[in-house]
Structure formats: C-alpha cells, structure tokens
Nucleic acid binder design. Structure first.
Length: 886
DNA sequence: AGGCTCACG
DNA sequence: ACGTACGTGAGCCTA
C-alpha cells in the first residue's frame, strides 16, 4: 500500500469482458462444484493482482454499469442498440466478481442511469481536486479523454495481462489530439459499437484532419460556411445535430450524483479468511495453493468417448492432425523396470486407449512415434522416452511436457502426479492416480477396464487442455525459452544417460563389504566393552541413554526428541571417553556398508549396471536430483568411503572413465551476477580465490602471508556468502566466536562491495516481486520473505541470496550437457555421457577417444555461457571412478 | 510417516 | 529477542 494518495479506478464491466474472452478457450473446464462458470472470475483475479502490484494504490473502486437504460438511452434510444447480448456464462459470474472484490476489501459500485465511465469520470475529478493521483484501468479507449497530468488511463491490451498507459503525451503521440478532443473525434466519426452515428462518411482520418484545423466540433461548425463546396461540407451541414448529439453521448460525465466518497475507498488489502472461503467455493486450487491452503481433490464430472486401439484399427492413427497427446501408463515410479500397463493417444477430436503396449512397436505406430514432424504433448517426457526405448522406440517430436512446464512455473508444485498438478492449475476433470489406483500395497488396476480407460483419456484431455494455458504463462514469465531450449532437450539427454547406465563391479563391492562387516564386528564388541553392556548402536535413543545418562557425558545439543548424537557433538565429546571415537568409527563404516555396499548392490540391474533416475522437477533451485540409486552422493571426502568408487567401472574392456568439473562455479556465478569488480578481477587473473579472500579479510598485502588456516577460514567464508551468510552460521562452521565471524563478514563486504550490494538488492527484489530468478529466468517464489517469524523470514532471505547462485550454476551445466550430447553425436564418438553431479560430468569412452574428450569436454563446458569471468574446467580419467585424478 | 544421521555438491 | 548456514537421498529407528 502506497503512502501517497493514489486512487485506482477500474472499469469492472470492461475488465470482466476482457477476462472472460481471454480465457474463453478454457470455459468448459472452469466450473465450480455447483456448475458455475468461473473463467472470468479467475482471470479477473489474475488481472486485479497485476494491476494492484503495478499501481500500488492507497484507494480503489471498481465501477460497474447499472443496467440497460441510462441518461444516454433517454437522449438517443438506439444508444448501444444491436450489441450482442452478454453471454449468460459471463452474466452469471458478475455477482461473484463483486464478491471477490469484497473479499479483497475493494468497493464495487454502480449507479442507476449512469455507466461505469461516468462513475469513474466523476471520481477522478473529485480525487484530483483532493490532491490524488489517479489511475484508471479499462479496455475502452474512449476513457482516454480523462487523461490529465494527474490521471493516467491504462488500457488493457492483448488479453488481460498487459496494459498500455495513456498520459496526455501518449494520447498526443497516438492520435495527435488533446485528451479533451477525443469527444470531438467521436462526435464526428461516431461509434459503431456504441451505435451512434456522427457525420456521414466521416471516419477517423477525416475527423482528425478537421480537428487539426479547427480544434473542436464547435470550431468546425464555426468555419463550415468557409469550406469550399464538397460532399464533406454537405454531410457536415446535413448531420450537424447528429454530430453534437454524438459528442454529448461520447462525453463522460464528471458530475454523476455519487453516493460514495473517496474516503470510503481506502484500500487495506484482502481479508484472508473471506478470500479463502471464496476460493474454496470457486474451486480455485492454485490460488488456495498460493495462500498455502491445501484443498480437497475434486471429482471429475465429464467422461469422454474413446476408441480402444487393436491390431486391426491402427490405421486410425493416420487421421490424427495437429499436436497429439501421448502417454505410456505405469503403476510405479521406476520406469526402467515398471510394468507398462497401457497407453493413451489422440486429440480432442478422437481419443484412443489400449492396455496392450506391444501395439506401440507395430511399424505403423512406431513410425508415428518416431516422426519428429508429428508433434506430441506429454506428461513427463523423460519417463515416456525411457519406456518407449524399452520397446525399441525412439520417441520424437515432443513439443510440450505438462510436468516440466508446471515445474518451471512454480517449483513448489513438485508433485509427479498428473491429476494433482492439473488440479493445481484449476483443471478439475481428471483424477489423481491415487484415486484410481490406490496407494501403497493396495495400488492396482481398477476392477473395471472402462474405469482404467476413462482415467487414461481424462489424462490425455488434461494435457491437451492445459497446454495453451501453461504455454501462455511460461511466455508471461519469460520462461518459454527455458522450457523449449533447456528443459525439454535436457530431458532427452538425461533419458539417454539413464538408459546407458554405469557399470558397477558387484564382486568388488561384495569383497569390500565382507571386510567392512569384520571391522564392524570388532568395533561393535569394543563399544559394548566400553559401555559395559550391549545395545543398538544404530539407535540414537539408546546411544543417548548410554552416553548421557549412564556415562554422564555433558549434553551439548538436544533434538526435538532427545539428545543429539550427531558427529559435531561426538567430536566435542571425543576427549571425554574413548567410547566416543569407537562410535564415530563404527558410524562411518556402518554408513558405507549399509548405504553404499548393500544399498548399491540392491540396485544393480541384470546388465551389471545401475540406472539412476534424475528427478528433473524436484529441487527448488533447478538442480537435478538422483534416485534409485542416488549417484550424486557417492563418498569421496574420506578415504574409506572413497574406495566405493573403485566399483564404478567402464562398461567395456579397454575403455576408461572420464570426468570434467567446473572449478568454483558458484563463486564465479556470484562474481558475474553481483558485478563485483574485485571478485571478477581475481577470477580473470586466475588467482586462488580462497587465498585472495584470505588476504582481503585478514588485511594482508601479499599472497605468501596467507597461512593454511587463514585460507581454510576464508574458504568457509566464501561458502557462507554463497549460502546467504549469517555470523552465527559461519561461527558454528569454523569454530570461531560470533563476534569474530561478524568482523570477517564486515571485512568481506568491504573488500567485495558489489557482493554486499547484490545481497541487499536480491532480498529487496524478493520482497517486491515475491520471487527470485536465475540467469535463465528460472523462478523460485519466496512467500516467507514477508513472514512475521524471524526464523522463517531469515530463511527466505538466505534462500533469496543462494537460489540465483546455485540455480544459475545449475542452468549452466544443463546448457553444457545439451551441447555436449550434440557434440558427441556430431563427432560420431563412442564416448557416452553417464552421470552429472551438479558441477561435474562423467563419461565412459574407448581409450583412444580420451585425448579427444580432454579437449572437447572442457571447451564445451567453459563456453556453455559467456559470463563476465571465465569458467574454469578441470578433467581427469582412469580405469575406475576412484582412479580419476585431476 | 517422521526424525535423525550422514553421504554428496 | 529471535536461533540459522544452501541444495539433495537413503538407511535406520521409533512412533
């Protein structure tokens, strides 16, 4: 809310019309529980938000037309005659738009015998006199007659999400007229949509010429006798009365007898409870979601006709035109192994389903699927790509993925379920998989085949229906390129990597495992001996009792449920009792054994490989994550764990593993986006960034004054900065006092002032816009930035600082991966990209191709984007992942 | 199902 | 006065 006096006046009828037709294509699936159409209400709300955010008014009113008859129809009975009737689907929504406004704390107003324009004109005049600036929003250009140096008229263009601001200068630019001359223009040329006549044969061109010469209609008629004889002169004389009447009709009244005053219009924001109740009544899931309110799943109302495909009717496929929806159905997550239970394909003209995926491999179907010119819309392109690949099909031509689009629009929508996401985008006519198949052990095909088929068709229809809406939103967010040029092609690259998999030497793991088991046994006995009893070492609860109650060690940290026994705690207790070190040793080995030896062994497939799945739509920053197994957290920091990497080997004899990683990519990204000159200089001169920081914060003059410990602390500070620093966090991390940490940070910001400015600016942006963005417009919303709770708010602020850095780094390696796959294909190499670990890419290749990769991979990676600082890439290779040394 | 711990960038 | 480093996944234990 602005502290200045700023009045916003909205032409309710005009905006509602725009809203209705902007979402007309979605009319049928925008209905609530009672069958009320809600598309105009929905779009009106969206537009209202945009306007409120842009204008930031202190006072607001929305004016509506009262009825069919006004003082204008009394003057001229044909006024607005012949206008097509307001569609009933819109009429029924007007009362609810008013209800919405009321929940927003905004007055809506109409007045007998007057139009919305007159209410607006009158209030604008009053407000100007009272020292307000005024913004008017409408789709009707006639209102531009109201522009003054204090009143701006904003005209909605292109649907409902863009507005064009008319000031007197802008009117002059567009029409060459003063705002006050617009009524003269209308008087002369008439208005077909309002159905008043003007002067015969006079259109915009002629009228503008006349007004340029004589300023007003009055002026024109003062000089009409001087005009030389012409058809125009005849028409002017003939239609004199019509011209003056039309001017009167076009004139917006500034003296309507209003019963509201400006003081009644103060805007203090919505009443949340009312608003939530309203959204619930309207079934607006996405708005509820924005308010962090969960809503119940809707039950689809509409069923569709469909045809079951068989071997005998596959030629029906040739009738598909335009973008078709396609999807292979599986009941479980892991698409590398899940049973394929059916598929859907089609367009709104005709939907097809089947429970026999073997049909997909029939030549006629396979050709269709592999035809890149036959465009397809899907839900989860990677899933379908991998499934198709299992049938020997290389799916091509996918132009839309509902899952990816939904993720980019709002990363918190991280469901993988089509029904859930469709509901979130206010599309109700599809059930969730859980509703149809059940969950957990009960998950199964529905008893009736027709129930299954109907669900498939509803999914197909949902993808089809939501595509235009989501594409429009992506474009609005400037994310369409991110979608089309990054996430979609990346999905195909990832599919290939997952399908290829990486070979794991099971016998190597088993041998390591048996050694670990022996060590664990010894450590276990030692713990029991030192404790004087046996207990479950893996139970933090039991361990807590032993350490803190029986042995009486000091309690350093507590968790919600009891004593903390985490590493940092145990490390502090190490000096107090020998059992602590034994427990630490046990923990370390137990972790390696259970997660990496036994866990990894369980996920090896028949082909001796592990095939991870990269989750492309999960993280809040744009990074990938990896599951089944997670190959992004294989041990490397400590020697015992690192040996696990010996089990990761090339898939063919005579091949090598090859890896390249970005060096300090996040700090380089920070140097770029913050524009900090000192940090940029350090990278441009290829200096040791942590030593450089050490010099800066310890006030040293030369690099050889930097001790290893100074460098370590500086490195931690650099990390802290990337994470959205706090003195407390830094002090905990490097074991210094909070006071010391604070002075480190102050020195840091003094030396890198651009970084400090970036931190301030990005938090401000998050507050103002509600989100932050990466270099490639990946967006993360941070509603907690306004939280009352210090904790929540601080967390959101740190996230605001970290996300553009971590997320831009994620963008960059994604670009590199797409380019890399193209290069491998182009150069016809046997080398294959296998893994991505956030800033690292891992390949396997015949030994002979290693020299090629040593040049190619770094050059692709460091030129993936062009930043203000160079990107540095380091590479290495070896016979196992363990042996890759850089 | 959720908490704790610990593996990675 | 508040009580934190950013982003993940998996295994284990305990409700």
């Amino acid at each position: 809310m602005s502290s200045q006096k700023k009045l916003l006046l909205i032409d309710g009828n005009s905006v509602a019309f725009r809203a209705f037709f902007a979402m007309h294509q979605a009319l049928d699936h925008f209905t609530n529980q009672d069958g009320l159409h809600t598309n105009a209400i929905y779009a009106f709300k969206n537009m209202l938000d945009i306007i409120l955010k842009k204008i930031e008014p202190s006072h607001v009113l929305v004016a509506f037309d009262a009825g069919k008859t006004t003082f204008r129809t009394a003057e001229f009975s044909d006024y607005k005659a012949g206008r097509s009737k307001t569609p009933p689907e819109l009429s029924e929504q007007f009362p609810y738009i008013r209800e919405l406004l009321s929940a927003y704390g905004i007055q809506s107003y109409d007045l007998d015998n007057f139009e919305a324009d007159d209410i607006i004109g009158t209030l604008a005049k009053e407000a100007e006199a009272a020292g307000f600036t005024v913004d008017i929003v409408t789709g009707d250009r006639d209102l531009t007659q109201l522009t003054t140096d204090k009143t701006t008229v904003n005209i909605t263009v292109k649907g409902v999400n863009e507005i064009e601001a008319y000031t007197p200068e802008h009117v002059q630019e567009k029409l060459g007229l003063l705002p006050s001359q617009i009524i003269d223009l209308k008087g002369l040329m008439g208005d077909t949509s309002d159905n008043y006549p003007g002067v015969t044969k006079v259109g915009e061109k002629t009228a503008l010429k006349l007004l340029a010469a004589h300023e007003s209609i009055e002026g024109v008629y003062e000089h009409v006798d001087e005009m030389k004889a012409s058809k125009l002169k005849e028409h002017l004389i003939e239609d004199r009365d019509q011209a003056f009447m039309s001017k009167m009709l076009a004139t917006i009244r500034r003296d309507a007898p209003l019963t509201v005053g400006i003081d009644d219009l103060a805007y203090n924001g919505p009443d949340l409870e009312t608003l939530i109740a309203f959204y619930q009544a309207m079934n607006f899931k996405s708005f509820l979601n924005q308010l962090n309110v969960t809503s119940e799943e809707a039950v689809p109302v509409e069923s569709y006709d469909y045809t079951v495909l068989t071997n005998d009717n596959l030629t029906l496929l040739s009738e598909l035109t335009g973008t078709a929806t396609f999807g292979i159905e599986m009941l479980t997550d892991n698409y590398h192994t899940a049973e394929m239970i059916g598929f859907y394909v089609g367009t709104p003209k005709h939907w097809y389903v089947s429970d026999d995926v073997a049909l997909l491999a029939e030549p006629i179907f396979k050709d269709w699927l592999e035809d890149a010119d036959q465009t397809k819309a899907v839900f989860d392109v990677k899933r379908n790509q991998v499934a198709a690949s299992r049938l020997g099909i290389e799916l091509a031509g996918v132009e839309f993925d509902l899952l990816l689009a939904s993720y980019l629009l709002n990363t918190t929508n991280n469901s993988n379920d089509l029904g859930t996401l469709a509901n979130l985008h206010d599309y109700q006519n599809v059930q969730t998989d859980e509703q149809v198949y059940g969950k957990g052990a009960k998950r199964a095909l529905p008893e009736e085949l027709t129930t299954f088929y109907q669900h498939l068709v509803q999914k197909a229809a949902a993808i089809n229906q939501l595509q235009p809406q989501l594409v429009a939103q992506l474009k609005e967010h400037q994310q369409f390129d991110l979608f089309t040029d990054m996430e979609l092609p990346l999905a195909l690259v990832l599919a290939r990597m997952e399908i290829t998999g990486i070979k794991v030497d099971a016998s190597c793991l088993q041998q390591m495992g048996s050694e670990f088991i022996q060590t664990l046994k010894i450590l276990e006995e030692k713990v029991y001996a030192e404790a004087g009893e046996t207990f479950n070492i893996n139970s933090p609860k039991q361990l807590g009792v032993i350490l803190f109650e029986k042995m009486g060690l000091p309690v350093i940290k507590k968790t919600k449920t009891g004593y903390s026994t985490a590493v940092d705690v145990l490390e502090q207790l190490r000096k107090d009792a020998p059992i602590v070190q034994t427990i630490l040793d046990y923990r370390q080995i137990a972790k390696i054994q259970s997660t990496y030896v036994e866990g990894l062994l369980k996920s090896i497939h028949q082909d001796n490989k592990v095939h991870t799945r990269y989750l492309q739509t999960l993280t809040q920053t744009g990074r990938l994550s990896s599951v089944d197994p997670n190959l992004q957290n294989i041990p490397v920091r400590v020697a015992e764990g690192r040996k696990i990497r010996q089990a990761f080997v090339p898939s063919q004899p005579g091949w090598q593993l090859f890896s390249s990683d970005y060096s300090q990519i996040e700090l380089r990204v920070l140097a770029h986006i913050s524009g900090d000159v000192n940090m940029q200089e350090a990278f441009k001169e290829n200096r040791d960034i942590h030593a450089n920081t050490a010099m800066k914060i310890f006030g040293l003059t030369s690099a050889d004054q930097v001790t290893p410990d100074m460098r370590r602390q500086a490195k931690a500070t650099n990390f802290g900065i990337v994470y959205g620093i706090s003195d407390y966090g830094l002090s905990q991390n490097i074991g210094i006092t909070r006071q010391q940490a604070k002075s480190f940070i102050e020195a840091y910001f003094e030396q890198y002032p651009g970084v400090q400015q970036f931190m301030v600016d990005i938090v401000k942006k998050a507050r103002e816009e509600g989100y932050v963005e990466t270099l490639f417009h990946r967006r993360r919303y941070l509603p907690d930035i306004h939280a009352k709770s210090f904790n929540l708010r601080s967390f959101a602020e740190r996230t605001a600082m970290n996300t553009p850095i971590q997320g831009s780094a994620a963008d960059i390696i994604k670009v590199a991966m797409i380019l890399m796959q193209q290069e491998l294909t182009k150069a016809n190499l046997q080398a294959k990209m296998l893994l991505q670990v956030h800033d690292e890419l891992i390949f396997e290749a015949p030994e002979a191709e290693i020299p090629i990769l040593q040049k190619l991979v770094p050059s692709v990676m460091d030129s993936a984007v062009s930043l203000a600082v160079p990107l540095k890439v380091e590479s290495g290779f070896g016979p196992t992942w363990y042996d890759i040394k850089k």
